[in-house]
Simulated assay, not measured.
Amino acid sequence: MEDLIIRPMTAGDVEDAERVSDEGFFELDTRMRRTAGPAPERRSTAHRAAWLERTHHLVRTDPGGCWVAEDTSGVVGTAVSFRRETLWCLATYAVLPGHQGRGIGAPLLAAALHHGRGCVRGMLSATGDQRAVRAYHRAGFELHPQMRLTGRVDRSAIPVDALAKVRDGSAGDVDLMDSLDRLARGAGHGVDHELMLRQWHLLVTDTTTGSGYVYVDERGRPALLAASDRRTGARLLWSALAEAHDQVTVGHVTGANQWVLDVGFAARLQLEQEGYLGLRGMKPPTPYVHSGALL
């Protein structure tokens, strides 16, 4: 496309990038909707605000990893990526419906991947969109199927000791959390903990028998969990589920984390397949439930 420009994202582009992402994923969810599944929805006001804050954060920390595709109509595609220590992650990648299949996605992804040069590991969370997963496979990512658990928690199944030794976390726990991140995925979240502490509720446990943390996001879902062992991970997941008062989703569950299924089935949640975890230079992290965008 002669009028297409791939350029670094600026703070002024973030709202346009959110619109592209929202429209792109809404169209994908509509196209791939399961017959018995809920009707796709656009982002809520709270979720949109969280998306905008996260992307502004990544534009500040990783300007070389955040890109937009622009033509005469405006911003039509976006790719947001970041590096933490020796790990490269893809947070968002979308092309506006009606502009897909026109050669926009490939140069966008290439620009984001260039930001990860020199990184020994890579992570991304992909939907089931076939064009995207083929592109990730060509880029050298192994694709690991993901699952999600959904439903209303059977509160009578919550173990009586689920909340034992689990407390509210704070910025004072960042060193502990980064050490757990490094054990699981080879790199700490670093400055991303500052963002998550503003947006989400943090639960932490740190005892002689195990340590770990879980963030509960603005939609009441366990958003990111890392633990030193599976038993501690299960205790933290139960603690997060205990905070749910309506429908809950535990997403981004890989086959390496069967302990999550143990908890989910005990809580009477329903299991579905959901997209792929793309990995390069690493095995699926465990005990770990990754964030879709901050990985």
Rank of each mutant, 00 (worst) to 15 (best):
H99C: 08
G122S: 12
A162Y: 08
A94F: 08
S179E: 13
G140C: 03
P107E: 10
R83A: 15
D129C: 00
V133S: 10
Q100G: 04
H137G: 15
R84F: 01
D168N: 13
M147W: 12
H115W: 03
H99T: 05
V68M: 08
V153Q: 08
C119A: 14
G74H: 01
R102Y: 02
L183G: 08
G151E: 06
H144M: 05
D181R: 00
V133E: 06
G64F: 04
G128D: 12
H114W: 00
H137D: 15
R102W: 00
R138E: 12
D71K: 07
L109R: 09
L180K: 00
V75Q: 05
T55W: 04
A162H: 14
P97A: 10
L58K: 08
Q146E: 11
Q100A: 04
T127K: 03
A110P: 06
L180S: 03
I158Y: 04
G64Q: 09
H114A: 15
M177I: 09
R117E: 14
D178G: 02
G74I: 01
C119I: 07
H114D: 14
I104S: 07
R117Q: 12
A91C: 07
D161W: 02
V95A: 08
L149N: 03
A112S: 13
C89H: 04
R138A: 14
G77L: 08
G74E: 02
F141T: 04
A164D: 15
E142N: 11
G101I: 05
K165M: 11
T72C: 07
G169M: 08
R148G: 03
H114T: 15
P159M: 13
A112R: 01
L183S: 10
D181G: 03
V59H: 05
L108C: 06
H99L: 06
V174K: 07
A171N: 04
R84L: 02
L113P: 05
V160I: 14
L108V: 07
S156H: 02
R84E: 11
R131I: 00
V120F: 02
R54D: 12
Y136D: 13
R152C: 08
A91F: 06
T61V: 15
D168E: 14
R83P: 09
P145E: 03
A135M: 07
D62W: 01
R102A: 13
D175T: 06
A106R: 14
L90V: 15
A69G: 13
G74Y: 00
R148D: 10
L163R: 11
D71Q: 09
R121E: 10
L149T: 01
L180Y: 01
L108T: 05
T86F: 01
W67H: 13
S125F: 09
D178K: 00
R117T: 10
Q146V: 04
G105F: 02
G151P: 03
H137M: 11
V133C: 07
R152N: 10
H56M: 01
Y136A: 15
P145N: 02
L58D: 09
S73H: 04
L52Y: 01
R60T: 13
I158N: 08
G98M: 00
G122P: 07
C89G: 14
T127A: 11
A157Y: 04
G98P: 05
